[in-house]
């Protein structure tokens, strides 16, 4: 799996998104991270491993404690994926809409053109 896939997988689960949101407020210890979740500590460990594999968190040993902090850079990759496609499809659909608007104007002017000769006769 490439890095983007790892990041997408990592942020695809609501618990992992909640962990990221918590860590966005600052580094935390394992138990502080696990506390709000009603899941086994094992499950939290697995979630953290997936976040680590995606490069989204790093662990730093401070004395006897391990502090876990967020590395947001990989998220930019995902955001750029989304924004690139947003731009691409918006540009496409703008052109598509313009085409039909233009067609509508052409039809209207054709109808007017047909009406005019009659108006002259009467």
């Amino acid at each position: 799996m490439d890095q983007l896939t790892n990041v997408l997988t990592a942020i695809s689960h609501p618990t992992r998104r909640a962990i990221i949101e918590k860590l966005a407020r600052g580094p935390a210890r394992f138990l502080e991270i696990a506390e709000p979740f009603d899941v086994a500590l094992n499950a939290v460990t697995k979630h953290l491993k997936l976040l680590e594999r995606a490069g989204l968190i790093e662990r730093e040993k401070q004395g006897r404690e391990v502090h876990i902090s967020l590395r947001p850079e990989p998220l930019r990759q995902v955001a750029s994926w989304v924004h690139e496609y947003e731009q691409f499809w918006n540009e496409r659909l703008d052109q598509f809409e313009d085409y039909f608007k233009h067609q509508q104007l052409k039809e209207k002017s054709l109808k007017k053109g047909k009406k005019n000769p009659k108006e002259i006769k009467t």
Partner: peptide, 12 residues
């Protein structure tokens, strides 16, 4: 769920 959603009203 990771998605781009765009809407347009097309006159046709």
């Amino acid at each position: 769920t990771i998605e781009v959603r765009i809407e347009r009203t097309i006159p046709a």
